[in-house]
Design a protein around this nucleic acid. Sequence first.
DNA 1: TAGATTAACGTACAACTGTACTGATACGCA
DNA 2: TGCGTATCAGTACAGTTGTACGTTAATCTA
Lengths: 129, 129
Amino acid sequence: MSKRPPISRGELEVARAVWGLGEATVGQVYDALAERKDIDYSTVQTYLRRLEAKGYLKTRRQGRNKLYCPRVAAGQVVREAINDLVERLFDGEPLALWQHLIQERGITVEETRQLRQLLEQWEAEQDDR
Amino acid sequence: MSKRPPISRGELEVARAVWGLGEATVGQVYDALAERKDIDYSTVQTYLRRLEAKGYLKTRRQGRNKLYCPRVAAGQVVREAINDLVERLFDGEPLALWQHLIQERGITVEETRQLRQLLEQWEAEQDDR
DNA sequence: TAGATTAACGTACAACTGTACTGATACGCA
DNA sequence: TGCGTATCAGTACAGTTGTACGTTAATCTA
């Protein structure tokens, strides 16, 4: 479980763009991000470089271009980020997170419905084992 | 909504200790934290100082001692931290977080039960309005 | 009351973050 | 084939973060 350096909040966002694209050049990642927020091309480039250095992404050369793609699965990184938060904020107790999400933050009726559905789906899957 | 500087991961942990104590000296916060992890007294002190500077905590003097206590409610900070994560990781879509928590991370049968209970409780409260 | 303990305060310092500029190339097109 | 445009590699740089030391003043204790 080679401990990678922790991923920062900003890096997380850039990494997400790469996950979404699968494999992409700086320019493509930039385009994807620039749609949602004001960010500089060079900034994206730096993030990608660092993500590679930290071991979250790997690169492959395609002629003149460099293609960035995940080296650690998205789910893995997301899981770690959430675990970290749960650890620091809720003593590692996931139920406390649920509780916060429902009570403190509030969820809509629609979300309640969808959540129930997710739960049922999950249970059904469990039964299949 | 006076924008405070963002709270860092480490700071979050220290802030949580203060929330738990209500009002405490560096020493008390240190004791609370040292139970769970190896950390230096001075480090705690620095965190507290910064949390005050950032506006998350305030202090009051009690004779020779300095008492730190929340200036921003715990729930508020936790909400912000989670919103931030959801924003960066799930496009601001909370359902995606639920989904990840259930499917990707997996929850136990017991948690499923408790989660249902939380949902019912929440719905009951909603009806009371 | 002298030494041990505690808290405050100031300072340090390398690593990490967010944000970006620059110069050298390579590529596509008029 | 020369020019604008996208890339890349390197560098910058202030602010933040994690971690901590040293000095001083007040407090407790034998």
